[in-house]
Nucleic acid binder design. Sequence first.
DNA 1: GCGCCTTAGTTTTTT
DNA 2: ACTAAGGCGC
Length: 742
Amino acid sequence: MPIDFKSQLNPAQLEAVMTTDGPVLVVAGAGSGKTRTLVHRLARLVSLGVEPSSILLLTFTRKAATEMLHRAEKLLGMALGGVQGGTFHAFSFATLRRYPQAVGYPGSLTIMDRGDAEDVMGLVMGEKGMGKGDKSFPKKGFVLELIGKSRNKELSIHEVLSRESYQLLPHASALEQLAEGYEDYKRNHGLLDYDDMLFTLERVLVENPELLEALRARHRYIMVDEYQDTNMVQARLVKLLAGDAGNVMAVGDDAQSIYAFRGANVENILSFPRIYEGTRVVRLEQNYRSTQPILDLTNSILSQAKDRFEKNLFTERTEGPLPEIVKAYSDQTQAKLAADRIRELRKRYMACEIAVLFRAGYQSYALELALNKEGIAFQKYGGLRFSEAAHVKDAVAYLRVLHNPRDAVAWKRVLTLVDKIGEKTAMKIAAAVRDNDQALLTAQRKKNPGLEALFAFLEDLRADPGGPASLLDRAVTFYTPTLTHLHPEDFPRRLAGLEQLGQIAATYAHMEQFLADLALENPAEEQKGVREDAVVLSTVHSAKGLEWPAVLLLDLVDDRFPSRHALARPEDLEEERRLLYVACTRAKDELTLFVPGTIYNRAGGGSQPAMPSLFVRELPRALYSELRETFSGSLTAASASLGSSFGTSVGSSSGNCGSVSTSRFETPRRTTSIHAPISEPEARSALASSPSALGDGPLGFCQHRIFGRGKVVARLDDGKCRVNFPGFGMKVILSEYLEMEP
DNA sequence: GCGCCTTAGTTTTTT
DNA sequence: ACTAAGGCGC
């Protein structure tokens, strides 16, 4: 039965689907049916008789690729197993693996994840003796990030430094040497980092015209999702594979570009029509996801952006509640309030229809505890990866040294697990293995029974290798005594993790693919699938492309969202704004933004007052309704119920509450009817009347709801005061929390 | 010289 | 929680 594309798509989507030859750029606003369009085009190509195997679908995650394939299969009623797809990195690695002679690297290759790369950088810095004892020298993680930026943005180290870290310019030449040392080290040990996969594929394609031709013939139709987040080498790879008048469809949204920090270049999508002559540009502007009140809010977020986005999103879903801003006393009570809200939403939604989003992985810790306490199941995306946990890396390292004996990073891991062996000895032994220095190896084995056991174990594995699952199983058995010794408290949890790793390994026949996917694809995440009974917790980055009926957003305060790291440079701040745009546009029906009054900072010495996020302060008051945690006066303020703040004044303080309340959201416009539509000029004037920080003013005495009367010792430039409270000591407090005495 | 323990100072986002 | 550095003991 032929698919009736006309009835299933709007005119713009239809145009994108019906255009099968030549370059097409689909500029797809949030929620405009981008995935639907890609899925239908996939189905259309196949229904026209195109071989699935000649279609290449490049997406941001493998999850996105498989989901699209499944949807297209459902549409077509046939399997599409032949379609090539996945991330740029996975595709590149798979292609390189298929043509090893063209790559020209001898022996097996190991893909390094971030942690491995840091280990290598640590070794290189140690070898060169750089950064030792010099506090001004950047740490290995930073050095690596710098090198990554330099490669991804294709700028010199010096240029990156002068743009974003000029205080490190004195170290420029040392850093350049480290970059070289890092490259050499990888080459000599058969190691590839993420960037290497892209650059190596490009080199191979350029150097081997006949191979390029073969790949062009193989991948006749190319579709690239999230094109705004490709970097320069990715764009060149697409161009190389497509040829001059290639059949490429790029899909993306310049307003949702959120990966500039790793070298994504939004210019790629903007210049696509120039690069591909005869490009047909299709704009998808009708939003099918969100209600009008949510769109009003997200449009407002974008309207403040420095780069103008020609976005004209509209929806037919006019009805819906206003987005809510919930002010909690602290990030601790925020967790409780969010858990309460989730319990309430559970009456109307399935758990999997509710998502909690946040800027950084650690920001959900308090909520995770609260949900555990209340017995609400959740699944977390983003943040620390399963495969980055130390015990997983340890267990996998045994497999890695077997697979690639030159893999010095893995050697260092397995060797330093042995008692009495540290970094130095480990590197000596790894070198001896590489050079086949039997004399040294025998001598070391005689000296250390733990080492003898390790080598005997590895020889045993090598003599009788099995599949990834059986090898891993034996490695875990060998590793378990070390693990229990290392983590007497929580080794059961870690053993359970290794058990899960075993289940993943069982789905792989080849060690190389297993190790590669561990670094590239986060197979643990895919294994868990979507649980209907679990609420989703996710970083905003990991939530990209997804949607939920109800979305909660945590920690909308300065330093958290926008991130502290983004405050220095305007372009970073703009990326944070787009990130918030991405976050809010995930919501279909209900959107709640949480603004805690204080945030806990281990480094900053406990709880600190927090300023509502710049982006929240910019929002016209009419676009949201506001709730605030009521002041109960007890330490268990977390159990306080929510109530509308309208007309509520801050009550008198009674003593010993660990958290504070603010009146920072009171603006002159608070009497505006919250359901009235707002015009652009109104929005602007609402903006102009946003509260401003009280940076200056006389010193003197002040009142604080919790600490009482205190002496203002200094006024700090970020709207905070240093106040000496009798009995409480010196505190740094936002001026808004203080009532000045005349 | 090297391993290992203690302590002080930091935690963004991802392939 | 995790890194880096300093100190102690072999």
